[in-house]
Write a protein that binds this DNA or RNA. Structure first.
Lengths: 190, 190
DNA sequence: CGTCTATTTGAATGTACTCAAAAGCGGTGG
DNA sequence: CCACCGCTTTTGAGTACATTCAAATAGACG
């Protein structure tokens, strides 16, 4: 029984018992320890992942080893390199565990088959992706229009619980500023 | 006959004749002139729009009248304030025509009904939104990691045809730099 | 041709950055 | 329980780079 993900899905679509069973049959639990990688850039990606427990970060790394944190994922978030997953190309993204993690994996083919057999999952993921899309638009707007301080306050507002789970230098990177600058911003705000 | 949008949809899902007819029946053509607004922040949004011809920009405007260009849309793009459309709340976004435009509007309720009657449209829009989501991730990464010059080159690469259709100060704003800075970047690149 | 808007150029300014060092914190083992 | 080690955060000083502001030039359109 994967109650957590069933509850999560049931917020958006109704599933009868056989549909629940069918959905659960394609879920593969996996555990990873802090600092392990779920996805490594350059490798192929075959799964979409749901976070049952723990915390991860998705980031790009460029040729000069600079990292750019794209997303943090905790309980009830989905994470993967969707471009790599969709097009069957090597990942550009890395996904690293910031804590010990429990995940559920869905193989790409199983997800496609799920769409075919239970079309309302198209609806479920359409809505999930739309919500993510809306959130990213809002983040782009913040990056264009707001100062580092405002972006930090916004982050704090949106994800108050992440503040104490994630190192400041990861948050700074996510916000597009340097750790020293975040430190100075935080000092001002006391 | 709205051949342009039928072709567009048919790249992703197959439609038989009656499905095509049903889809076309919910499309409302509209024309707007340069500088007119398709969506005004604060007003309610009832439609999703497909661009048949012309060019528009979606942007936020903050209390100090600063604008932040979020998206340009030309032929074959979709545009709306999806948060406002989904949640029935007033728009935060503005959408302005940069050229005379021909659009097709789909009412929110008609789109929901379309999902019910022809579920593969859930698939169509899931895939469209996923592609947009992937593009936004990539843009976030650029904002975090790349210089103004690199972002400009990337923009030029992605949308070579927009370069001559859109004012530089709109492009600069989209890239998150000032028009003067873009001018200096362009000068360097000659 | 004239007007309005967009782009370019120059000089001064300011904000976030880099680099380096110190302080703080957490976990491990003696 | 304390001492040590490694890592994170803070602090300080100097620097670089995009921005601001103002003015000149270029371009579009009636």
């Amino acid at each position: 029984m994967h109650q957590k993900i069933l509850d999560h899905v049931s917020h958006i679509i109704d599933l009868n018992e056989s549909e629940q069973a069918e959905f659960q049959s394609i879920l593969s639990p996996l555990k990873l320890s802090k600092k392990e990688y779920l996805i490594k850039s350059g490798e192929f990606v075959h799964h979409n992942f749901f976070v049952v427990k723990g915390c991860l970060r998705a980031f790009y790394r460029d040729d000069q080893e600079n990292e750019a944190n794209l997303q943090f994922a905790t309980e009830d978030w989905w994470i993967s390199d969707y471009e790599a997953l969709k097009d069957g190309i090597p990942a550009r993204l890395n996904v690293e565990c910031l804590e010990d993690c429990e995940l559920l994996a869905i193989h790409r083919d199983a997800q496609e088959e799920l769409y075919r057999r239970i079309p309302k999952f198209e609806r479920f993921f359409r809505i999930k992706v739309m919500n993510s899309f809306i959130a990213l638009r809002s983040r782009i707007m913040s990056n264009l229009q707001k100062s580092g301080k405002e972006r930090y306050l916004e982050f704090y507002d949106h994800f108050p619980e992440l503040e104490n789970r994630i190192a400041n230098y990861h948050i700074a990177n996510y916000l597009g500023i340097k750790p020293e600058s975040l430190s100075r911003i935080r000092k001002e705000l006391i």
